[in-house]
Amino acid sequence: MKEVKAIFLDMDGTILHENNRTSAETACVIRKLRASGYRVFLATGRAYEEIYLLIPKDLEFDGIISSNGTLGHIGNRVLFEHDLSESAVNTIVQSAQKEGIYYEVFPFKAPRFALTEDQAWMLALVQGEKPQQVAESEWLSRHEAIKGKLTWRQHVPTGMGYSKIYLFHPELNKIEAFRNQMLAQVETLKIEVSNSTQNNIETMKYGINKGTAIKEMCAYFNIDISETLVIGDSDNDRSMFEVGKVTVAMKNAKQHIKTRTMYETDFDNNEDGAAKFLESHLL
């Protein structure tokens, strides 16, 4: 791995524990990597504004890719921004309403929202005990969202600029049917469809994903793709694995994800598997 100069890290299921937080051990390894001359980036499906709620306050990165590649930051400066069309946003929201799918719309410059008319049934959908088939981290994220991150609007505003829509349902058959519905409209709505767990869907601008964002970030820093290492665990990381030179799947990743990578960590995300892999191979 002598050629590696840049490291791109997913968050959920990778550097975040099940409680949706990054440990001090992982933060320490990231600092050591940067001090040793490696450039370290985040490449997450999370919205930019929530990232710093989940990592130590003094932990820094060379760049941050958020919302599955639609937004790129260098420090506080926006490097790129790829908007999901307003027509697609309205169509997807209407479809979610019709099918009873929980949704969160993410503007670039305002808090995530759903429509007030859907508040009662959406909140009811994520109350009570966690369903067995839903990941602990995702259930926790929904509860964190409804307690302080999700806002309510009367209608979808125009001229705002949208990064993505997150969609969720605790019943697998419901969310799988809706995912197939979205996939059937990829060309007509000009959307990218992905997911980070089996119970969710995320829609972004057509042709935009973590892989395209890595290319944009590398171009800015004059890093060749052959000098990259990427680590992830889920379906929304597949585009990273298609682009990165050295590819690493987390131990906790599904088997169909592991078949796409060169390496697998010896430990899962709750055991700081990504940090341990990087420390043993690069430090």
Score class of each variant (00 low, 15 high):
residue 182 M to S: 11
residue 255 Q to G: 03
residue 255 Q to H: 06
residue 228 T to G: 12
residue 215 K to G: 01
residue 201 I to V: 15
residue 175 I to L: 08
residue 176 E to Q: 15
residue 255 Q to M: 09
residue 211 G to L: 05
residue 207 G to N: 06
residue 195 N to R: 13
residue 218 C to D: 03
residue 192 E to V: 03
residue 239 S to K: 01
residue 217 M to F: 07
residue 197 T to Q: 02
residue 203 T to S: 08
residue 251 K to P: 03
residue 191 I to K: 12
residue 175 I to C: 09
residue 247 T to N: 09
residue 229 L to G: 09
residue 229 L to T: 05
residue 194 S to T: 15
residue 179 R to F: 12
residue 236 N to E: 08
residue 219 A to W: 03
residue 185 Q to E: 10
residue 230 V to E: 10
residue 192 E to L: 02
residue 205 K to E: 06
residue 228 T to Q: 11
residue 176 E to Y: 12
residue 225 I to W: 04
residue 255 Q to V: 13
residue 209 N to H: 12
residue 188 T to F: 03
residue 218 C to F: 07
residue 187 E to H: 10
residue 192 E to Q: 15
residue 249 A to K: 00
residue 182 M to I: 03
residue 221 F to N: 06
residue 234 S to M: 09
residue 218 C to R: 00
residue 199 N to L: 09
residue 249 A to M: 04
residue 187 E to C: 08
residue 206 Y to M: 09
residue 195 N to K: 11
residue 200 N to H: 06
residue 211 G to F: 01
residue 215 K to F: 02
residue 180 N to I: 02
residue 227 E to V: 05
residue 177 A to N: 12
residue 238 R to L: 15
residue 204 M to S: 13
residue 200 N to F: 03
residue 226 S to D: 14
residue 205 K to T: 07
residue 210 K to S: 08
residue 201 I to Q: 00
residue 186 V to Q: 07
residue 254 K to P: 05
residue 250 M to P: 05
residue 176 E to M: 12
residue 199 N to K: 06
residue 249 A to C: 10
residue 224 D to M: 11
residue 226 S to Y: 08
residue 244 G to D: 06
residue 192 E to T: 15
residue 241 F to R: 09
residue 246 V to D: 11
residue 219 A to G: 02
residue 229 L to P: 11
residue 200 N to I: 08
residue 211 G to D: 00
residue 230 V to R: 01
residue 183 L to Q: 12
residue 210 K to A: 07
residue 223 I to T: 11
residue 221 F to Y: 15
residue 237 D to L: 01
residue 241 F to D: 10
residue 238 R to G: 02
residue 212 T to D: 06
residue 246 V to S: 10
residue 227 E to T: 02
residue 178 F to E: 06
residue 251 K to I: 01
residue 185 Q to C: 07
residue 181 Q to M: 01
residue 198 Q to T: 14
residue 222 N to E: 11
residue 187 E to I: 07
residue 223 I to A: 01
residue 196 S to L: 09
residue 176 E to P: 06
residue 244 G to E: 03
residue 201 I to H: 01
residue 223 I to D: 06
residue 190 K to N: 14
residue 190 K to Y: 08
residue 200 N to W: 03
residue 183 L to Y: 04
residue 216 E to W: 05
residue 255 Q to F: 07
residue 240 M to D: 12
residue 190 K to Q: 15
residue 247 T to R: 14
residue 213 A to E: 05
residue 207 G to E: 02
residue 241 F to W: 10
residue 198 Q to Y: 04
residue 208 I to P: 04
residue 183 L to R: 07
residue 199 N to R: 03
residue 244 G to I: 00
residue 238 R to E: 15
residue 218 C to A: 14
residue 232 G to F: 00
residue 230 V to D: 11
residue 212 T to Y: 05
residue 188 T to V: 14
residue 249 A to I: 04
residue 195 N to S: 13
residue 185 Q to W: 08
residue 184 A to S: 15
residue 180 N to G: 15
residue 209 N to E: 01
residue 180 N to K: 14
residue 192 E to Y: 10
residue 182 M to A: 13
